[in-house]
Design a protein around this nucleic acid. Sequence first.
DNA 1: GTCTATAAATGGATAGAC
DNA 2: GTCTATCCATTTATAGAC
Lengths: 208, 208
Amino acid sequence: MSGKTRQRILTTALALFNEQGESNVSTNHIADELEISPGNLYYHYRNKDDIIEQLFQRYEERMDAALTVPDGRAVTLEDVWLQLHLVFECIWDYRFLYRDIINILSRNRSLRLRFARILKRGSGNAHAIMKGLNDSGTMRASAAEIEGLATNILVLATFWLNYASIHGEKDEQRAIQQGIVQVMMLVSPFLRDSERLHLHTLSAAYAS
Amino acid sequence: MSGKTRQRILTTALALFNEQGESNVSTNHIADELEISPGNLYYHYRNKDDIIEQLFQRYEERMDAALTVPDGRAVTLEDVWLQLHLVFECIWDYRFLYRDIINILSRNRSLRLRFARILKRGSGNAHAIMKGLNDSGTMRASAAEIEGLATNILVLATFWLNYASIHGEKDEQRAIQQGIVQVMMLVSPFLRDSERLHLHTLSAAYAS
DNA sequence: GTCTATAAATGGATAGAC
DNA sequence: GTCTATCCATTTATAGAC
């Protein structure tokens, strides 16, 4: 059972970080919650940052998996919907990172570079998908408009769950659905009339 | 000179909080920087939260002053531009609040309520200004579109400087200008053709 | 692998002299 | 108003027994 405790530490740390914020959870808290000794925890991980890096690794792999562009076929609005779901679910599951992102990145150069890469990938992804919608005739926007739109999608996706949290929204599914609707509202003005009407119908049902 | 040290503590605390993040600045750090004793600092303020509350008070008054709607005349795009400037400058000057907002609000019920009020006021403000642009014929959007637009403006304005900070943007003026351009891009699709062209010309010059 | 015990450092806060 | 001295609690991290 070599990796058993090691895994339990990660799982419990993630839960506590998400609930109480990374800076409010000490290694002692994590050990307490697991009913193991602090010494035992330090046998498995060098320090708190080591735990955070392992969690970041999982986050990174999951976000990389979520950020894909349909290959060899036209992009549809359903693709956007699905991808936003995957991205928001990932952010939710690792929301402690986003809640304290500037602090966490400011004390760890490696994570800073890796998060910058994720953001860049997210930006490129939003770009490619918007361009795909444009090429398939689903929407119509200039290059400059797609550029600005991709940036706004990225910022909104990155910080929406923080915003929802400040508003006291505790329900994961509701928060995510509202986030998706808001991102869709960014795209909506550029859609063909028929697509836009269809989207508004879907959104109204979805956000209720 | 009764209030002299009291004021210097606020000024120095604000500078340190903005530079290093509120959670990374202890009362000892503030006293050190001012070259006064920790005991002296505690003579002027009950505790660290007391200092934060006083800073929040100043932030609150400034943001309240920035969030106004032109009275008795039509709203123009220049009004939007000016107001975004005032709002972003205010957020910049108190960026420590936004950087750690969830943590700060989670441990202080009073600030939570007061920040919620500011957000609500910001939301109502964005709403009223968009409605004003609509009424003056500068833009054309449905009630649902204005609703979604106002929310997205609020989220973008609230978190843009965090996003810019992650990107390593250290220059206040550049960060703010880019933020304004991005907000304007949210509004752009709803503008009349002539207004939209005018805006794109202005934005291109502004963001350079 | 896990525990107990503990060191070393830091942060918040107060008492009492000046 | 300001300082010195100090206390208490917390956190990170390690040493050494089992």
